[in-house]
């Protein structure tokens, strides 16, 4: 009887060889790059200058702005900020440019653009900030300036942090 059982077991092993299974994992990875987009148009226009009172534009007035959309924390600064506006060969007209930033409707303190630095933190997704520009042209400088159109440019620098 024992031998019959052994034989049955042996035959069963032959007919039903062991089936196997296995699994393994791999990881899918991606890195989303920092991105920032500056939008908006329009110059900071002082218009016709007064020689009697200083010519001031508040950077938080919204008169001249740029929008900034970003998906990571950034620092905003400004480079090549002019100390004067120029008009051909005329003597440059001194200007003190000022900058500010606004997040969710709240403006930062106004800073001289040449030294301004705004740390802007990203929200849960794409975040939009507003950069505002202003400045002062002193009446005394206007009084001694030659008539003409004066202009200058400067750059907005966005640094990921």
């Amino acid at each position: 009887m024992f031998r019959k059982l052994m034989l049955t077991a042996a035959v069963t092993m032959l007919v039903l060889p062991g089936m196997a299974s296995a699994q393994s994992t791999v990881t899918a990875t991606a890195t989303v790059s920092p991105a920032a987009t500056v939008g908006g148009t329009g110059d900071l226009a002082f218009g016709t200058l007064s020689a009697g009172t200083d010519n001031v534009i508040d950077a938080t007035s919204g008169a001249t702005t740029r929008t900034l959309d970003y998906n990571h924390n950034v620092t905003i600064s400004f480079t090549n900020v002019p100390a004067a506006l120029v008009s051909g060969t005329s003597t440059p007209l001194p200007v003190a440019l000022t900058c500010a930033s606004s997040l969710a409707g709240t403006w930062s303190a106004v800073q001289p653009c040449s030294t301004a630095s705004f740390d802007l933190d990203v929200g849960a997704a794409l975040t939009q900030a507003i950069l505002g520009f202003g400045g002062t042209i002193a009446a005394a400088d206007v009084a001694t300036a030659a008539a003409g159109d004066y202009a200058a440019t400067f750059d907005i620098t966005i640094t990921a942090r």
């Binding site: 990881t27 899918a28 990875t29 991606a30 890195t31 989303v32 790059s33 920092p34 991105a35 998906n71 990571h72 990203v122 849960a124 997704a125 794409l126 990921a160």
Partner: peptide
């Protein structure tokens, strides 16, 4: 509006 960073 995808936030920057690492994903897996």
């Amino acid at each position: 509006a995808q936030p920057a960073g690492s994903y897996s």
